[in-house]
Design a protein around this nucleic acid. Structure first.
Lengths: 211, 211
DNA sequence: ACGGTTTCAGACCGCTGGTCCAACTCACGG
DNA sequence: CCGTGAGTTGGACCAGCGGTCTGAAACCGT
């Protein structure tokens, strides 16, 4: 949430600022990025920058929020379904769309990784984490009515587990993107979604209580 | 790995430095922590500190490594086992011991969280992440001979998934420690380990290929 | 008593994110 | 045509950061 003034700024200028910030934050993370460098790259003065954004965290939040919106836009909504397999089919379709977008724009992936990479300790990016977990929780909740998602543990707990798994495997894959065959990449991504499905599916493998 | 000189320093002094650093890093994370503040709290001069530690990252690494050693010590080794259920029984025992230690010393938990919290982006704590994943990979590998751990995907990939799940659920729990009943805490921890077991167990739920 | 090494104190450096205010622009009322 | 006041901007300035460096003590074997 930049100061309201930002919205009234010449759109080219807006884009210049956001682009510079995107580049710097994606490359060096939040605390690693130099606000001064962003200001210089964006071609304005310190006073101007602080006139439009409250502080470094504000700019970073804004950048990531836009990126998240872009991602959400690309991923779209869960389509209709009326049983558990249908739910998981839709989940796969949605994450597939999101993955395509991220592959097409690596900076986007870096930025989303930023949320969990540094946000956990500092409260600066905390709200973004909460939003991500809230979204995940809601999505999982949609699968409960058709019996696709367990409800024996708090849904937010399950969402956290799922997100943790996804975030880390995503990082694993990102680190090896160059050396990974396309087929292997797809196989791992699917394996990943299988894991998520197994995590979320109700009582995946109980030994049925005797009598 | 502090400079060798550090080992020859008066043990009380050593402890004072490490304790100050532990407190500051646990409270504010790596980049949030003030090296100057640690120096002041430890009661020595800048020159002295830089005489014993190469830099801020060096001190932080040292602190975390000691903490990790303490944790490894408390967790102990995997006991003997000769089938899959035995393997998972041992895993549960080991993680249970580690959890007890962390509950007894919250600072320890904060510090371990630090590794994944900020290390992913910067390469400063990177080696620690690699060590954690290597340890996890080895541990899972131990379960393969008895058929407790799948081998259809790279083991390091599986290890990453497992660690991601554990790290994030751990954070979920830590944030709610105050408001969580002891029984609920145990139930969630067990659910967590169930999830890990399901993730790692070979082909958890394949529809057996027809004929 | 000496020279050489080890140990340390703290001034100093270039940088950081953030504050502040003087100065400029410009639309509007008189 | 001139105020005038709000909106905008440049950039000096600040405390604090991590890190370097000089030089003086303290300790040493000889």
């Amino acid at each position: 949430m930049p100061l309201q003034r930002f919205e009234k700024l010449d759109p080219d200028r807006q884009q210049a600022i956001l682009a510079a910030a995107r580049t710097e934050f994606a490359a060096r993370g939040f605390s690693g990025a130099s606000y001064n460098a962003i200001i210089k790259a964006a071609g304005l003065s310190k006073g101007a920058m602080y006139y439009y954004f409250a502080d470094k965290a504000d700019l970073c939040r804004t950048v990531i929020e836009r990126v998240l919106a872009q991602l959400a836009d690309a991923a779209g909504e869960l389509g209709p379904f009326d049983d558990a397999p249908g739910f998981w089919r839709e989940i796969r379709a949605l994450t597939g769309r999101a993955m395509l977008e991220m592959l097409a724009m690596p900076e986007l992936a870096d930025l989303t990784r930023l949320i969990y990479g540094e946000g956990s300790s500092s409260e600066i990016l905390g709200p973004l984490i909460e939003r991500a977990e809230a979204w995940c929780t809601e999505t999982l909740a949609a699968g409960q009515p058709v019996g696709a998602v367990r409800s024996d543990i708090p849904l937010s707990f399950l969402a956290t587990a799922v997100l943790g798994l996804l975030v880390h495997t995503d990082r694993w894959i990102a680190e090896r993107l160059d050396t990974l065959e396309a087929a292997e990449l797809e196989r791992l991504s699917l394996a990943c979604l299988d894991m998520v499905e197994h995590l979320a599916t109700p009582v995946p493998d109980p030994n049925p209580a005797r009598a």
